[in-house]
């Protein structure tokens, strides 16, 4: 009797092991087990245009998150070789590192805020999902370190994000995180105001003659990219901006003000960088053969 009981109790563990082999090891062996998983550095190698746009649109904020990267290579030169001075390869390496860092951090926030409980990341071959969201998911496109743990999700309160990269612009995401209902009225997504920080920015008051001609309020202001954490930094930026003004716009210098502003912090930038990456990475032929 004793032995039968022991055998049976081993059988209980055996059932677990059998299921583990059939539904975890076996799918692994015929999918991820056959191909080397792409590292974060590999998936970050192609810098998305939206990541460059983040650096252009939020220069001061980007510098705080990734010091020195914009100096290493100007954003304009990242996607196309403009033939400028300096070591372009070294600059690109710095950008890729910043991109990888952003993707990693952005994904951590995606996990920590529970985004994955309301947004899925897999497109099924049914229910017209390929029309609504894009091509049906393959296991190869999820075979990378940013899908550990996998972010497929089990519920769609919000739309699928498999191909979110490039679908909407960075400023749309900023406005959306501040208050989702401003850009999609009726949305039930929580707002994420802790992705923002307060600071000071330069803004230019409208040319009075243009204000009169167009009927716009004379106090209309146009913000200049870059929000600084302290007023002193913003004042310094103001001076730099005035010095750099082309002669035709010299008069604008007098209409430059430093005003309080809010902007994305480095977490917000990272999350947007991650969202803009989604669906843009495709495994290359070589990595399939490895």
């Amino acid at each position: 009797m004793d032995r039968i009981q022991s055998i049976l109790s081993v059988a209980g563990v055996g059932c677990f092991a059998l299921a583990f082999v059939l539904s975890a090891v076996y799918p692994w062996a015929i999918t991820s087990g056959t191909v080397t998983e792409a590292t974060i550095a590999e998936v970050a190698e192609r810098i998305t245009p939206e990541f460059v746009d983040l650096a252009e649109r939020y220069p001061a904020e980007f510098d705080r998150a990734h010091p020195g990267v914009r100096e290493a290579l100007t954003p304009q030169s990242v996607l196309a070789d403009l033939g400028g001075s300096g070591d372009r390869e070294a600059g690109l390496a710095a950008w890729r590192e910043a991109h990888a860092k952003s993707l990693r951090r952005g994904r951590d926030i995606y996990v920590a805020e529970g985004c994955w409980h309301c947004h899925s990341q897999y497109v099924r071959p049914v229910s017209n999902e390929d029309i609504r969201f894009g091509p049906v998911s393959t296991w190869l496109q999820d075979n990378n370190a940013l899908q550990r743990p996998v972010m497929w999700g089990t519920r769609r309160v919000g739309p699928d994000l498999t191909y979110e990269g490039g679908l909407r612009s960075n400023d749309w995401h900023a406005a959306h995180f501040w208050e989702p209902r401003n850009v999609s009225p009726g949305s039930v997504m929580p707002r994420f105001r802790w992705f923002f920080e307060e600071g000071f920015r330069l803004s230019r008051t409208i040319d009075p003659s243009i204000a009169e001609r167009t009927g716009l309020a004379p106090e209309t202001e146009y913000p200049i990219a870059g929000v600084y954490l302290t007023q002193a930094d913003a004042e310094a930026a103001r001076q730099r901006h005035i010095d750099a003004l082309p002669s035709a716009l010299r008069a604008e210098g007098e209409r430059l003000n430093v005003t309080p502003a809010r902007t994305l912090n480095s977490d917000g930038l990272s999350l947007i960088a991650y969202l803009q990456w989604l669906g843009t990475w495709q495994p290359t032929a070589t990595s399939q053969e490895d």
Binding site: R46, T48, L79, R132, G134, P135, Y163, L167, T280, Q282
Partner: peptide, 9 residues
């Protein structure tokens, strides 16, 4: 750059 076709949607 090879990475940017028309967006799937």
């Amino acid at each position: 750059d090879g990475g940017r076709g028309p967006h799937p949607t």
